[in-house]
């Protein structure tokens, strides 16, 4: 039974919790979020944060312990088959495709399984192969494809029935820069031009920063932050700038360890001639303390730079401290 939503959200999670049987920890704890039409929502979190569990619950592959998940108004527990028809998913760590079949054969098979009418299927496959730039390679067995080509084909397969929602679990994992860039372009086209709602999980902050409209940060199964990328950066940049201090010479590891104990959040990138220290959220007085400390240690400061924090730094800051929104 399809229920009327208060808004047009493609996906809506309300107080969703998942505890795997026999597990001591809760994988996902009371999450609520909504994915709007044409929106790219990035689900960010460290390994084991609950990202894949969340995606699989939305896809109806994992049952939530409590809470409600709706995809275009269909309850994913009570009405899974109808809800699933509204979405396509490419899951991480899986082939998603039959490697012994060619690209076209895979699309024909999965298209039939998704009940795309036979008369429309060939045309749909042609469109999708063109979209993901694989028309020239459509008769080659998928096992001979590069990782990037396989990933693009998996997205095409997930799009066969023209779903409104696309779930992409680590879509650029293992791709080289060029392949990742092309995939990003495809994802952007699907959201911006075709109005698909796209939820993607990623470890690549740059991908989230450049592509996502909103970012949902999850840590140990709990929501840490949920805002637009710009809002998130603005919020943290309001009182937190990143300070970069370049010090002459390669700092000893014991010195760096001691420094990090005294000034939480400092990261150090030592190389042969200099050491770059980055501190995402210091107050000016604390920066002065750090500079004094470096001076006491006879470190020669070559350069000090204050700049806005990057999403990656915000992410590290939030997940390391487990802050709540």
């Amino acid at each position: 039974m399809r229920t009327k939503s208060e808004d047009n959200a493609f996906v809506r999670l309300a107080n969703v919790t998942k505890t795997y049987p026999g597990a001591k920890k809760t994988a996902v704890d009371n999450l609520s979020l909504a994915l709007q039409p044409g929106e790219i929502l990035a689900l960010l979190g460290p390994n084991g944060a609950g990202k894949t569990t969340t995606v699989k619950m939305i896809a109806g592959l994992v049952l939530p312990s409590s809470g409600n998940i709706q995809v275009r108004g269909f309850d994913m527990v009570q009405d899974r088959t109808k809800g699933v028809r509204q979405l396509g998913a490419v899951l991480e760590g899986a082939r998603n495709l039959y490697w012994r079949l060619s690209a076209r054969e895979n699309l024909l098979y999965f298209g039939s399984l998704r009940l795309v009418p036979r008369r429309d299927l060939n045309q749909r496959i042609d469109e999708l192969l063109k979209l993901v730039d694989l028309s020239d390679h459509q008769h080659i067995e998928v096992r001979k494809y590069s990782r990037g080509m396989q990933q693009k084909l998996a997205i095409a397969a997930a799009m066969l029935h023209d779903p409104n929602v696309l779930l992409l679990d680590e879509p650029t994992l293992g791709l080289d820069v060029q392949a990742a860039r092309k995939l990003e372009e495809t994802i952007a086209i699907l959201a911006r031009e075709q109005g698909k709602g796209i939820l993607l999980t990623t470890h690549t902050m740059l991908l989230a920063e450049t592509l996502a409209d909103r970012v949902f940060i999850i840590h140990e199964g709990q929501e840490v932050a949920f805002a637009s990328t710009q809002e998130l950066l603005k919020k943290f940049n309001g009182n937190r700038e990143a300070t970069e201090i370049r010090v002459d010479g390669r700092m000893a590891e014991s010195t760096i360890d001691f420094l990090q104990q005294m000034f939480a959040g400092v990261s150090a990138a030592p190389n042969v001639e200099t050491t770059m220290l980055t501190w995402p959220e210091p107050k000016q007085s604390r920066v002065v303390d750090l500079l004094k400390y470096l001076d006491e240690q006879d470190e020669i400061i070559l350069e000090i730079n204050r700049r806005q924090a990057k999403l990656e730094e915000v992410f590290i800051s939030l997940t390391e401290r487990g802050e709540k929104k």
Binding site: A59, V84, A89, L91, Y98, L115
Partner: peptide, 13 residues
Amino acid sequence: WGTLEQVWLSGLL
């Protein structure tokens, strides 16, 4: 191979 999940995602029983 992970294709089982795609079969489950077909929207069919």
